[in-house]
Design a protein around this nucleic acid. Structure first.
Lengths: 356, 356
DNA sequence: CTGTTAGCGCTTTCAT
DNA sequence: ATGAAAGCGCTAACAG
């Protein structure tokens, strides 16, 4: 193994100056065909890897990157994704990027439509999308494709689009695993109540649909005889929930186990606590501050984490490295499904807690 | 927030040249008290953070770092730790470090003693230690302390030493959690067999002792009535194990659940498979290749992971950043306890599988 | 003990 | 279209 190859080395081999090599490497034009071909030939032979440290300090260009996700409040799932994104920008503090965040109401398709239309008109180098509505996302992506603007999905991916990459859990497997966990905790014939968020003007979120499919498939495959009670759950009109919940617990002789397929498990946990309903086994999604609290109190048995900080971090990092170094990108990126209990939750690393 | 502060800025403020500031920052001596004090005063006021990219490309010094751990074979626990270490070195490819690995037999105290004595005589800048024997490690560390050589522990930490840092799971909590998981899988009065490795010339490994304590404490606290069968397990003399195992399964009416507190769970799983013993619930430690295989086959119910790549990676990274940038170090670093099932194992990220 | 300076490899600007 | 050269901030060698 000899010394690392540099731009000057390539320049010498191709009989040009390093300026020209740089222009070819970055597709910056103003290069004669002869020179370009000579350089490309050399590049095929040598395995040139730019020194990213040097690149980092010499970069002068600014990049404009837009991020769009559902709205979020402190401690919520989507906030973690944004934390991850910010940490990636901190790691590349030397790179000048203007980034702008557009959020929409994930329970209201009209809000999403409006936001995405605004975004479509903006000048930008790249986009990171947290999608929840299928059709709206497909429309946006079509426009981006036309303009050759690269985009990366976080949280989930959408069919009929061509993202540079996506960072997401496998939601089907997630539901499958939840089914296994909950059935291991309860007697064979216990009913299981599943909570799903309802939304304005659209079906359930794509993630929830996939999780539910995985869940029911597990039960079917394993010939589980548990009765499934599907309970709607309104984030926008919380007063409706009281009704559903009270109906649920009064119509049933035996207390059912509970699975919450979105990150609002703590709502249900609180209802149970306030109404002194005990002995319910709960499994919920996502390590929101409120869910973690409920887990520690023993109200929730298992929380399933899907590495939101990691998703955000790598979405932004991947995008930057693609823009700056044209680094090749892995398209499919499935994140871990972490199983958290009150025992191991304290060691779980979010970015708050030192990282990467 | 103004422009980032550089060495020249500090030099100007302190009324000296940047060479002198650099000498202070790196403790390289040849600085008058007056200059040093002036610079230190400025450093207190401004929050100087060196540009690591620039540092990385200008570094010329070589570092000699020694790593000592138990021996390991492909796919084993300790190999993952070494993988993490190597990845840290790759991240800092520009830094010239000579690193040398010394392994010892973790089941033989004499081997450890010999290795550590050899290491103690070597010239080096820093040491990373995977300890398993208490007394021997304490002895080694005393000598290192005398010579002002910094050391970091991985896998576990040892009392009465003063490491720069350690990266380890909380083994007590680990045992506690395993107890919770296994009892959730089995009827209330099922016996539980616990396997521990036996060693030559010493008690059990410190990690195993802690895990077992956590395990029994959980059962006690929760008034579990399961009978615990402690089974010795020999790595050096595998033929003994057959005997223990056959005795175990013939002396018991009901098939016990099984917990393996070291990373050799797959041995037991294979014994069960070979002898057509079915329906045993097993929980084992560590994501070795062999254990993962057994998990996927359904022979093992849960595997507990303790992020060995992460431990190795951060041990080396922390050491390098301490040596090069005098970056302040967090001493206690507890890693995650990951719960893996055959459902989520495929998404588990080791370094093989893209990382950091 | 201290200031000055070459050099790291890449990006970008400026003549030509 | 192309080469030359400045500049990024830090490290380490060197001269004084």
């Amino acid at each position: 193994m000899h010394r690392k190859i540099r731009i000057v080395d390539i320049a010498k081999m191709a009989g040009v100056s390093k300026g020209t090599v740089d222009r070819v490497l970055h597709n910056r034009g103003s290069v004669s065909d002869a020179a370009r071909i000579a350089i490309e030939k050399v590049l095929e032979q040598v395995n040139y890897k730019p020194n990213i440290h040097v690149s980092a300090i010499s970069l002068k260009r600014r990049y404009k990157i837009i991020v769009t996700t559902p709205e979020f409040s402190p401690g919520a799932y989507w906030e973690s994704i944004h934390n991850g994104i910010r940490h990636a920008l901190e790691e590349y503090e030397n790179v000048k990027v203007d980034y702008q965040v557009f959020t929409y109401n994930q329970y209201d398709v009209y809000s999403c439509r409006e936001t995405f239309e605004k975004i479509a008109g903006i000048e930008m180098d790249a986009l990171i999308i947290g999608p929840t509505f299928n059709e709206e996302t497909v429309n946006l992506c079509k426009k981006l494709d036309d303009r050759d603007i690269p985009y990366i999905f976080v949280d989930s991916t959408i069919e009929d689009t061509s993202p540079l990459a996506f960072f997401s859990a496998d939601h089907y497997v997630c539901g499958f695993m939840i089914a296994k966990l909950i059935t291991s905790l309860i007697p064979a014939h216990t009913n299981i109540a599943i909570f799903q968020a309802v939304r304005t003007g659209d079906r359930s979120a794509n993630t929830t649909i996939l999780r539910k499919k995985g869940f029911t498939d597990y039960l079917e495959k394993n010939r589980c005889s548990n009765l499934i009670l599907s309970i709607p759950f309104s984030v926008t009109e919380p007063e409706d929930n009281e009704m559903y919940l009270s109906h649920l617990f009064h119509s049933q002789k035996d207390i059912p186990a509970i699975v919450v397929l979105n990150s609002r498990g703590n709502y249900i946990a609180n209802y149970l606590a306030n109404n002194h309903i005990e002995g319910v086994k709960m499994i919920c999604m996502d390590l929101t501050t409120a869910n973690i609290e409920a887990l520690k109190k023993g109200q929730i048995e298992y929380l399933i984490g899907q590495e939101p900080e990691y998703q955000g971090f790598y979405a932004m990092k991947t995008m930057l490295e693609y823009l700056i170094f044209k680094k090749p990108v892995e398209r499919q990126n499935y994140v871990q499904l972490d199983i958290l209990t009150r025992e191991n939750i304290d060691f779980y690393k979010s970015f708050n807690n030192i990282m990467y």
